[in-house]
Design a binder for these strands. Structure first.
Length: 584
RNA sequence: GCGCCCAUGGUGAAAUGGAUAUCACAACAGUCUUCGGAACUGUCGUUGGGGGUUCGAAUCCCUCUGGGCGCACCA
């Protein structure tokens, strides 16, 4: 219905002498109608008329051939043109979505084709072996997963890439301490959390001595080179063991978070690739030598200089990232866009990196996009994995899960159900808290207990879907809607449509637009925001009348509406990476 | 010091240059003999200061104040 009106307006405007893309807004105030446009305001000056006069011209022209779905057109305020759509149009739309078939509706409502045929790479999470998987990684994972799903929902094919760090100075620090504490090392049979916690402690100790003890620093630098060259079998064995422990633990966390990766590219593999590329382009003048290192001079582009190969001849993070980028495009040559999600403290660094990549391969540079996210902050101050002052993703999850367990304790669930439900709700609560805010900003947790399950929260959304689903079960039992003749194309259909629809119907029909905008801007918060409004609209609808009622002729319609709500909520939550439990 | 980012009710957030700035939490006052109360309804209260651009600014520009991040061999 929206496109129809926009096209008509485009034609009218063109006849008046302006070529313009007409955009229809959803006014926040329902009194302003279902759609609104400010074209008269935007083009009045260009056409030498007052906005009011232009609006009147447009509306007169529009009324000569008014689309059937439109109930009224008005001019309001300084020159806004407002459209009201006939109530029955929304009601019919709802029934038509509900009638599309169970499989189709659950999986497809809101799914777009705007990016079909495109391949988009999304790299996110990027944890460090030998270090704790902390809440920063959790945040990157929630955001990256949601961006991936948005891209998928826009019709593109997504390759989810994880780039775990398994080489570099931090590993040398850990292994150096590990060697000293070999006897305390937990056996392979110990719980994985204990084993990786031990690795994390070793990293903290190694870092402390690297910074305070010059002899230790020299040792660690030397060890770093040994690890790169893989020249010492005993060190290699320690390295392999620790690396495996970390990677196994990460997999466990991905399963809990409901994420998976299509492609793992390890930093250790990128070291030789990056080294080679940087050396090749040193000869071509992209990089230059400075104080024994190989650097990229960013100043001429308004950026800063960064070291790509250090004076020991080892590739830094920068060179390895160059190798990573080359590798991505080599493996997926038909890539349309390559997205990298990291913390925003790396924003300036990525500007330098993408500039350097552009000089090596202009097309790849143009297709690569960095998205920086904010941090999870606590009132206690900045988290640092260097000092061991970190909050692991696991401990945050465990705390929230505990709250959920207490909350559902009085309900009769089997232990297996309780485990699954509390996990889904805990993950939903955390992911929603992260995704409701715009990506670039920080998210503040005062404490785990501050996560409320009421109002603006993930569990509130999950709950609304679960409750609506149980209403559908009751409706099915009573044979409402499922047995009804759902054809409403004519007026002869058995479903009686209401004369007036609520905000719920209108919101549901906007869902595809919300997805499109969120995808286009890589902004999951638009989806989160929308879902909260949607859940509120459903809860109000639910509170205002009985849905399943054999004696009410409108009951079939209410059930159809509930069904479409469940589909919309479920799909919206899926985009956020949040599961809807069967019960809660 | 240089560069980038941020500042919205008591708190946490949203908002394509558009209409009376939108939510939630908290507080206060209510609803209902649950189709699942993790609910619903209502009240209260907001764009850091100062200039500018614009028909129109939370949004764009300048400036001040206050915060965050980055700035050569960490990732």
């Amino acid at each position: 219905m929206k496109e129809h009106i926009a096209d008509r307006l485009g034609v009218i405007l063109k006849e008046l002498g302006v070529e313009a893309q007409v955009k229809l807004d959803y006014p926040e105030n329902p009194e302003h109608g279902d759609f609104s446009t400010n074209i008269a305001l935007a083009y009045a000056k260009k056409m030498g008329m007052s906005p009011r006069a232009l609006a009147e011209n447009i509306v007169d022209e529009f009324k000569k051939n008014i689309p059937e779905s439109v109930a009224s057109v008005d001019i309001a305020g300084a020159g806004f043109i407002n459209f009201k759509i006939k109530e029955e149009v929304f009601a019919k739309e709802i029934v038509s979505i509900a009638s599309a078939g169970a499989g189709k509706i659950a999986h497809n409502y809101g799914k777009l084709a705007v990016n079909s045929g495109k391949k988009i790479l999304v790299e996110y999470t990027d944890p460090n072996t030998f270090k704790t998987f902390h809440i920063g990684h959790l945040m990157a994972n929630a955001i990256g997963e949601s961006i991936s799903r948005l891209v998928e929902y826009s019709g593109a094919s997504v390759v989810r890439i994880c780039y775990p760090s398994d080489i570099g100075l931090h590993i040398a620090k850990s292994i150096w301490a590990l060697e000293k504490h070999k006897d305390e090392m937990p056996p392979d049979s110990a719980p994985i959390q204990d084993r990786t916690a031990f690795l994390g402690k070793m990293y903290v100790e190694g870092t402390r001595l690297y910074e305070s003890d010059p002899a230790a620093k020299d040792d660690i630098d030397a060890l770093n080179k040994v690890i790169y060259e893989r020249s010492n079998p005993a060190i290699n064995a320690l390295y392999e063991k620790g690396r495996r422990w970390s990677l196994d633990h990460f997999e466990m966390l991905y399963a809990i978070l409901g994420t998976h990766f299509d492609e793992y590219i390890y930093e250790s593999e990128m070291a030789p690739v990056g080294l080679e590329v940087v050396k090749a382009y040193l000869a071509k003048g992209v990089f230059e030598e400075s104080e024994g290192a190989i650097v990229f001079k960013g100043e001429q582009y308004g950026l800063h200089t960064r070291v790509f190969i250090n004076s020991h001849g080892l590739p830094t993070y920068e060179a390895k990232e160059v190798g990573l980028n080359m590798t991505k495009f080599k493996k997926y040559p038909d890539t349309e866009q390559s997205i990298i999600v990291t913390a925003n403290e790396q924003n300036a660094y990525f500007k330098v990196l993408i500039q350097a990549i552009s000089m090596i391969n202009a097309e790849q540079g143009a297709k690569t996009r960095h998205i920086g996210h904010g941090m999870l902050r606590f009132s206690s101050g900045k988290m640092s994995s260097r000092t061991g002052n970190v909050i692991s993703a696991e401990s945050l999850l465990a705390d929230i899960k505990e709250l959920v367990r207490n909350k559902i304790a009085e309900r009769k669930f089997t232990p297996a159900e309780a485990e699954e439900i509390s996990n889904d709700i805990a993950v939903g609560a955390i992911k929603y808290t992260i995704l409701r805010s715009s990506i670039g900003g920080d998210v503040i947790f005062d404490s785990a207990a501050s996560i409320s399950f009421e109002g603006d929260s993930g569990p509130y959304l999950q709950y609304s879907a679960v409750r609506a689903t149980s209403i559908l079960a009751k409706a099915k039992q009573e044979g409402i809607f499922e047995n009804a003749d759902i054809s409403v194309a004519g007026t002869g259909g058995a479903i009686l449509l209401p004369e007036k629809v609520s905000l719920l119907e209108k919101l549901i029909t906007r869902f595809p637009d919300v997805i499109e905008r969120a995808q286009h801007e890589y902004a999951p918060q638009h989806v989160a925001n929308y879902l909260i409004t949607l859940a509120g609209a459903f809860n109000s609808f639910y509170a205002s009348q009985v849905i399943v009622d054999k004696n009410n002729n409108f009951s079939a319609y209410y059930v159809a509406l509930t069904k479409v709500f469940v589909a919309t909520m479920t799909n919206g939550l899926w985009v956020l990476g949040i599961r809807v439990p069967k019960k809660m």
